[in-house]
Write a protein that binds this DNA or RNA. Structure first.
Lengths: 212, 212
DNA sequence: TTGCGATGTATCGGTCCGATACATCGCGGC
DNA sequence: GCCGCGATGTATCGGACCGATACATCGCAA
C-alpha cells in the first residue's frame, strides 16, 4: 500500500522523505494516522532498488514558489521513473482482496483521479461487498449472540454496524455518480479523453489491465 | 493488543486456538476483520512462555453437548493463570497513546465490563481527544489545502470528517452515561427504541458470561 | 548564547498479516 | 463402501508496518 501511495505522490512531483510523509499524511489523513519513517525509508530504498524511483539532484524551485533561499543539506530528493509509472498503473488497475480493506481501499480511492472509470466502479463495488459482509457479520452477532455478550461489547457492535450502514450508503451514492459519469460532488476539470501523451501528468483514465 | 484480548477472553473460559479466534472475531468484529493465525499462535506461545497462560488437559464436554465419543486430537486448550489475571488487570488499567488509536481503543472498550469506571472515563476522554485532533486535521486540509487536492481525495476527507464528528458525538454520549453511572444504552433491534428505559442490563463490574 | 522546535535521514526490535502446509472429522452423494 | 468436501484444528515463514530512538542542521526568540 505504501508503495502505491509513494509512486502516486511522486508522479505529481519529486520530493524528499520528510515532504513525502507530510503529503502522505494530508492525502491519507482520513484513513490512517501518519505513516512512520520506519516504513517510509525502507520502502523508498526498496523502490529505488527496483528501479521505480531514483534520487534526483535537488533543483531550485520552479514556479512562483518562495525562492529556496537555503542550502540543500542531506536532503535526498526522489523522482519516479518510467518503470515506476508503469508499476503504478499496474498496481492501481488491479484489485485484489487487499484493495477492499480499510487501508487498501482508502489508498486506491485517494488516487481515483488517476484511475479509469471501469476500475473505479469495480473497486467501489468490491468495497461495498466487503462492507456488506462485515455488516451482516455484525447483525448476526447482534441478533444471535447478543445474550452472550456484555453491554459494552454490544454497544461497540452497534456503533460498528451503524458505520457500516453509513458507508454502504456513501458507496451507493458514489457508484451512482460513477455510472452517470460524474465525479464526486465537486465537478472535475478535465474529462476522460481518449488521448494520452507519454510523460505528462496523466488525465484520468487509460489503463488497460483487465485480464481475468 | 492481541495479548490483552487473549487474556481477556481466556478469563471467561479456557479455549483452544481455533475457538479463541472465533470468539475474538465475534467480540472485535466491529473493529478488525479477523485475527490471523500467524499472529495468534506465536502470541499464545509468547504468553505461555511468560507464564500468563498454560495448556490445560482437554476435558470431555460438560453440559448437554453431544457426548464427545471421539477422541480429542491435537487440540491444545489454554487457560489463564493467576499471573495472567494480574497482567490483564495491569494492561486494562493503564492507558497510553496506543490505547486511543482505532484498534487499541476498540479492544479496551470491548473489555469495559472488566474495567473500573475511572479508567473507562479516562479512556473515553482520551479517545475523544484523539478523534478531535484527527477531525481538526481533516478540517484544516479541507479548508486550507482544498485546491491542491482532487475531487476524490476531498470526498475521502469529507467522509472521514463525517465519521469523526459522528464518533465524537457517540463518545460524548458514552461519557455522559459513564458520569451518570449507567451502562451503555441498550435499545433493541426491530423496535424503534430511542428511549432508554432503565432496563440497562449489566451494571458495570463483573462480567456476565454464562458458561457451563 | 543558548536553547528549542521544525526539518531532515536513518535503524532496530517487535507486532501482525497473508499465504501456505498439513491432518482429522462428519456428512452427503454415488 | 468409499470419495470428496467443508469445517475444524495446529503451525510456520516472509514481509509490511510501527514506535522508539538516535543524530544532525537551521532559524528564531528569550
Amino acid at each position: 500500500m505504501l508503495e502505491l501511495a509513494i509512486l502516486g505522490l511522486l508522479q505529481e512531483s519529486p520530493m524528499h522523505g520528510y515532504e513525502l510523509r507530510k503529503e502522505l499524511t494530508a492525502k491519507l489523513g482520513a484513513i490512517r494516522a501518519a505513516i512512520s519513517y520506519g516504513s517510509l525509508y525502507p520502502t523508498l530504498r526498496r523502490l529505488q532498488a527496483a528501479g521505480w524511483i531514483t534520487e534526483a539532484a535537488e533543483t531550485p524551485a520552479t514556479a512562483e514558489e518562495v525562492p529556496a533561499l537555503t542550502s540543500r543539506r542531506g536532503r535526498v530528493v526522489y523522482k519516479i521513473t518510467a518503470e515506476g509509472k508503469e508499476r503504478f498503473a499496474q498496481l492501481i488497475a488491479q484489485a485484489g482482496p487487499e484493495t477492499y480493506d480499510d487501508t487498501g481501499f482508502g489508498v486506491h480511492f485517494a488516487f481515483f483521479s488517476r484511475t479509469d472509470q471501469a476500475t473505479r466502479l469495480r473497486i467501489l463495488e468490491g468495497r461495498r461487498r466487503t462492507i456488506e459482509e462485515r455488516r451482516e457479520g455484525l447483525r448476526d452477532v447482534l441478533g444471535r449472540a447478543a445474550e452472550r455478550l456484555d453491554a459494552y461489547t454490544l454497544e461497540l457492535q452497534r456503533h460498528g454496524l451503524d458505520a457500516c450502514e453509513r458507508e454502504v450508503r456513501w458507496l451507493e451514492e458514489l457508484i451512482a455518480n460513477e455510472r452517470s459519469g460524474r465525479a464526486p460532488t465537486v465537478p472535475q476539470l478535465g474529462t476522460a479523453g481518449g488521448r494520452r501523451d507519454d510523460n505528462s501528468p496523466p488525465p484520468p483514465g487509460e489503463s488497460r489491465t483487465e485480464r481475468p
